[in-house]
């Protein structure tokens, strides 16, 4: 999207004012409202859909498969991203993919033991992400959708014994009982820097004028890696004062828990 010079300078002046005045009047720490649906795909182990007020929409499916982890040491979590209208090898998709892969490897609570079934077998989780429409960087939206999907994912309950190295048997599952996977995936927050101000969850217009942006990963009450800077537009990309990073991380630390609670209760 191209904005006129007058629009950009109006936005920039508003956002850099003290306190910042966002075009939709949000507070610096306020996110846009979202709508969440979960568990609507019976053929997946978990699913979620998130729609943001501007029409951005992301659908996540979680499917599980039993694999013999003694045979190969393949990753137990595989992410696949599809953005409507983008090629799978487009820079946008590839950047996001690499980010998501890093995000899923960050921090505890996400180790392989959670997916291990028996001495021999594990669940492998396939997370498929479909972004149907997005007006600005969808990283945050994707992480929220991923969280909701994993949070409601259920897997069949194991009824055979855990120790199956000696006996050659395939894991057996209960016909009806399901267990919650209880895998908490990290949340990703997008923080835009405009002048000396920081704003969370920038919309399309705000993205056009921000000087810089930071992606912050958060899990379990703490900020984790990866933390990255990214440019959301071509025209304004200035460096930023490192003290702003401190302030930004603090802003996320203060508000991430509220987002988590809101997502969990949904």
């Amino acid at each position: 999207m191209t904005l006129s010079i007058a629009e950009k300078s109006y936005l920039y002046d508003s956002l850099t004012a003290s306190p910042s005045i966002r075009p939709d009047g949000r507070k610096p720490h306020q996110f846009r409202p979202i709508e969440v649906s979960t568990d609507f795909l019976p053929s997946s182990n978990g699913s979620s859909r998130i729609i943001s007020g501007d029409g951005s929409e992301c659908i996540v499916s979680v499917k599980a498969k039993v694999i013999d982890h003694t045979l190969s040491d393949e990753e137990l979590i595989q992410v696949d991203l599809d953005i409507a209208g983008e090629r799978t090898d487009s820079p946008q998709v590839e950047t996001l993919m690499s980010l998501l892969n890093k995000v899923l490897k960050s921090g505890p609570g996400f180790e392989h033991s959670r997916l291990q079934l028996t001495e021999r077998y594990s669940f492998k989780i396939f997370i498929d992400i479909l972004v149907i429409s997005s007006n600005c960087n969808p990283a945050s939206l994707i992480s929220f959708a991923m969280f909701s999907a994993l949070n409601t994912t259920t897997l069949p309950k194991l009824i055979s014994s855990f120790d199956d190295l000696k006996v050659e048997e395939l894991p057996m599952f209960d016909d009806y009982d399901l267990v919650n996977l209880k895998l908490k995936s990290p949340l990703v927050f997008l923080l835009a820097i405009v002048g000396n101000n920081l704003i969370v969850d920038p919309d399309a217009n705000e993205s056009e004028v921000c000087d810089n942006a930071i992606i912050v990963t958060w899990l379990d009450g703490k900020i984790r890696s990866p933390i990255r800077t990214l440019t959301l537009n071509n025209s304004y990309s200035k460096g930023f004062d490192p003290t702003l990073l401190q302030k930004g991380l603090k802003l996320i630390e203060e508000n991430a828990a509220a987002v988590l609670t809101a997502l969990e209760s949904s």
Partner: peptide, 17 residues
């Protein structure tokens, strides 16, 4: 609900608002 984010939960499958 907090003023940070509001999340609306949609029940009963994939009904679109």
């Amino acid at each position: 609900m907090s003023d940070v984010i509001s999340v609306i939960k949609r029940q009963s499958g994939l009904k679109y608002a």
